[in-house]
Design a protein around this nucleic acid. Sequence first.
DNA 1: TAAGAATACCCCCAAAAAGGGGTTTTTCAA
DNA 2: TTGAAAAACCCCTTTTTGGGGGTATTCTTA
Lengths: 205, 205
Amino acid sequence: MEKIKLLIVDDHRILVAGLKKLFENSATVQVTDVAFSGKECRSAIIKELPDVILLDINLPDASGIDLCKEIKSQHPEIKIVALSSFNEYAIVRRMLENGASGYVVKNAMPEEIKMSVEMAANNASFLCEEIDLLMRKRSKNPIWLTPREKELLKLIVDGFTNHEIAEKMFLGVETINSYRKNLLIKLGAKNTAILVRMALEEKLV
Amino acid sequence: MEKIKLLIVDDHRILVAGLKKLFENSATVQVTDVAFSGKECRSAIIKELPDVILLDINLPDASGIDLCKEIKSQHPEIKIVALSSFNEYAIVRRMLENGASGYVVKNAMPEEIKMSVEMAANNASFLCEEIDLLMRKRSKNPIWLTPREKELLKLIVDGFTNHEIAEKMFLGVETINSYRKNLLIKLGAKNTAILVRMALEEKLV
DNA sequence: TAAGAATACCCCCAAAAAGGGGTTTTTCAA
DNA sequence: TTGAAAAACCCCTTTTTGGGGGTATTCTTA
C-alpha cells in the first residue's frame, strides 16, 4: 500500500519543521511538499496532488476557510485537516461546512495530528480532543438567551445605540449597558462586531 | 364588486388620520380599521380580516419586518404594503423577503399610496418611485469596494479593533480609522453593527 | 496631461462601547 | 417558601468608534 501523500500549509516555518519531523519516520504518511502561503499551496497541489492537506487557517495571503472551500470545489478527493490556534465554535463549524475532514489545534498532542491525517485519508473525520469537547458542549448547550436578551440583541443587530435601545425598551441606559456586557460574556464575544456576526450566523435573532 | 378592506397600522395618529381621509371617498377602498401598535394590529386582524394592510415599519412594540412575516405566515391571503420613512435598501429587501407586496415611503405622493393598496389587492406588487429607483440603482450598481476596503471589512467582521487591524495590515491606526469611516459612508452604515450585518447579508466578505 | 480613484497618513474631539465593580426587585419553579 | 434566575438599575474608568476636518502619493485612464 502506498503512503499517504501529505501537503503541509502553514506560514510558521518552525511549526512546519516540527510537523515534517513528526512524519519523518512514519510508515504510513509521507510529506510530499510544504507551502507557506495560499499561493504556494495552490502551486503545490498542481505540482503533485496530495491525498491530505494539513491547512493552517491563518495564512498571510488567504483565509484558510475560503481556501478550504476553493480546494474542495476543485479537488473533492483531497482531504483537508484544519490546523489552527483558534478554538472558536463558529470557525470550526465553518471549516467543516466547507468540507474539512478534521480540525486540530496547534497545541494538540502529536498523536492527534498523526491520527487526524490518517483518519482523513480513510474518509473519516477527526476532531482533536479540545475541539471535540467544544463541539459537544455547544451542541448540548445551544446558546440560551432570555427573552429580554434576545430583544436587546435584535436591536443591537439593527444598529441602535444603547441610548436608542433604552428608549425603545423603556429602560435606563445603564440597564442596557449591563445587559450588553452580559451578552458579550454569555456569547464569548469580544465586541459588537462579533456579537452581530454570531447573532446572524447562529440565527439567534 | 366589494370594496378592498384596508387596515392601517401606524403609531403616528396624525398620519393615520391623513390616510383615512385619503381613502374617505374612494370607490374601491374602504378603511375597515386602524391600529396604533403591533398588538392592536393582531386584534384588528382577528376582528375583521382585511384584504390589505398598510403597515408601518416602526411600531412602538414590534418591528414591522417581523410583524409582516408573522402575519403572512398566519394569513397568506392578506396583502401587506410597507409604510416607512426609511429608504434603506436592506430594509426594503427584507420586507419583500418577508412577503410584503409593496413599499411606500411616508412622504410619497397620495396617488402612490392609493395605487399601492389597489395593486396589492390585485396580487401585484408596487414600490413607490423613490424606492423603485433605489432598488434599480442598487441592482445595477452593486456595492463596489476596493481590495483594501474589502480586506479591512473582513477584519472588522472578524472582530479586530483598529489597532489590531493596523498591525495586521502594516498600516497606521489613523489610516485604518479613515478607511473605516469611509466604509461607513460608502455603505451608508450607521455603525459597526450595521456594517457587519451588511457585510454578511450581502456577502461582501 | 489632467482629472479621478485608490492608498496612506494626520489632527481634534465627542460619543459609544467595554471592563470592572456593585444593588434591588420581581418572577418562577422546586 | 425560599432560592435561583431574570430583570432593572448605578458608578467609575479606559478603550474604541465615529464625525469633522484635512494632506500627500501613486496609479490609471479618459
